[in-house]
Computed example of a mutant assay.
Amino acid sequence: MANLSSVARSAYSDLLRLLKDDMIANVHGSLVTKKRGDKVYWYAAEKIGNAVKFWYVGPDGEETRSRVDRMNELRAQAAERRKERSRLARLLRAEGMTPVDRGTGGLLLAMAKVGTFRLGGTLIGTNAFRLMEGELGATL
């Protein structure tokens, strides 16, 4: 096990921030809040046919509200963020973080698109340990 450099740790946190921005920027429909018990959550309300579907975005908080307020600005900057995400991913590979293979990456992307992780789904096993490198600040 080797510690990640400060450059890699910074790149990882920047990449997480950009991905969270994209989560809000890619919302279809309008954003609304719903109260469940004593907590408030953000949802995207989208009309599909005659029904309105609600897609979970996340818990209400300062960070989420800030992103919601900047939603149109985030949508306009999508291409720039995509380029920056690619650059950060290359930097993390160069710093020694283990990339996932193409097949696993496609599967994880599909799981993310259907909301598995947003709704609390958890990845376990070898790939989970690989993906923890950025959180732990060390390569395994």
Score class of each variant (00 low, 15 high):
70 R>A: 11
49 G>M: 05
87 R>W: 04
54 F>D: 10
75 R>P: 04
49 G>Q: 06
88 L>N: 01
37 G>L: 00
83 K>H: 14
64 T>C: 09
69 D>I: 09
38 D>A: 08
81 R>P: 01
57 V>P: 02
46 E>M: 13
50 N>I: 15
82 R>S: 07
78 A>Y: 03
43 Y>N: 04
74 L>C: 04
78 A>V: 09
60 D>C: 04
55 W>A: 14
64 T>Y: 14
73 E>N: 07
51 A>S: 15
74 L>G: 02
81 R>S: 03
73 E>F: 02
75 R>W: 00
83 K>E: 11
56 Y>W: 02
75 R>K: 05
86 S>W: 08
88 L>A: 04
81 R>K: 05
73 E>R: 09
56 Y>S: 01
72 N>Y: 10
60 D>K: 05
52 V>M: 12
85 R>L: 08
82 R>Y: 08
63 E>C: 05
36 R>Q: 11
35 K>Y: 06
53 K>N: 11
63 E>A: 07
55 W>N: 15
41 Y>P: 03
46 E>D: 14
39 K>F: 12
84 E>N: 06
72 N>E: 13
72 N>M: 12
78 A>W: 07
48 I>W: 14
41 Y>C: 07
35 K>F: 02
82 R>H: 12
39 K>P: 05
66 S>T: 12
73 E>Y: 03
75 R>G: 07
62 E>H: 06
47 K>M: 12
42 W>M: 06
45 A>Y: 10
78 A>K: 12
88 L>G: 01
62 E>T: 14
54 F>Y: 15
88 L>Q: 00
77 Q>P: 05
77 Q>I: 08
50 N>T: 15
35 K>T: 11
51 A>N: 15
76 A>Y: 11
88 L>M: 06
60 D>F: 08
44 A>Y: 02
44 A>G: 03
44 A>F: 04
63 E>L: 10
69 D>P: 11
74 L>N: 04
51 A>W: 15
80 E>P: 08
59 P>W: 06
80 E>D: 13
87 R>L: 00
52 V>N: 11
